[in-house]
Amino acid sequence: MSTMTDHRTHTTGALVVDNVSKSFRGDGGLGEPVPALGNVSLQVDHGEFVSLIGPSGCGKSTLINIAAGLVGDYDGAVRIHGDRVTTPHPGIGMVFQEESTFPWLTTQQNVEFGLRMSGVSAKERRDQARDMIELVGLGNAAERYPAKLSGGMRQRVALARALVMEPEILLMDEPFAALDEQTRMVLGEELLRIQSKLQQTVVFVTHNLGEAVQLSDRVVAMTARPATIKAIVEVDLPRPRDSSIVSSPRYGELVAELWSLLRDEAIAALGERERG
């Protein structure tokens, strides 16, 4: 039996989400406010891998966008080093679900991009990017343009581009959602390896329960709109992990537990969408 912890809030920790709410107005800002997030509190510790799961459209991405500083107007506080986040924080790196590699740059140039913009010397950024490209397993594709790479390889480029900046917190918004199941498994495994090597703090949004269990230290299950935290499930699977973990009985139990938490929410969310 896994432990379900209370929704704790501490003042330390890499990322502190303190009583955050957010509403959107429809009809070009003139309609009734629709709540997307309701009083969410959460703390992510240094080196921790936390996944957010919930029914689609529940507001997981809203939360991660607030943490990224892309949504500045919200209630409550997301804090990094005690500072309330309203614009992108320098300690944040982000990987998106959608295509985000720059098609006019090679893998090497894509990964160097952030370093170049922040004024790192040519030699230094070449070496750092080179190492990161090796780390994500793209050593032989450094000079290729994204058009010549598969979807999975492009996501590796996006991951390397974020990691090379050595972010304190890596935010990943459904990064593998557009990939096929096998690629997703392989990339999940790669991410585990990279994360254990770099001790990277990661907040990972997904709607894939197995992926959440495979990767995370804790999984935050969210309710249907407006999203609140329903439960936080500690994943007590041993590390280091690889994809073989999916055959362990404990993995199956944890996925089942998450599903039992989410089932009603998923149905509620579906009903809401069908009602329009």
Binding site: A68, G69, L70, P88, P90, I92, G93, M94, F96, E98, E99, S100, F102, F113, G114, M117, M165
Partner: peptide, 18 residues
């Protein structure tokens, strides 16, 4: 334009000119 490129630019804290 792919709106994700703009998000990447913002998260990387590029100046308007960059």
């Amino acid at each position: 334009l792919n709106p994700t490129y703009l998000k990447v630019a913002r998260v990387m804290r590029l100046t308007d000119r960059q």
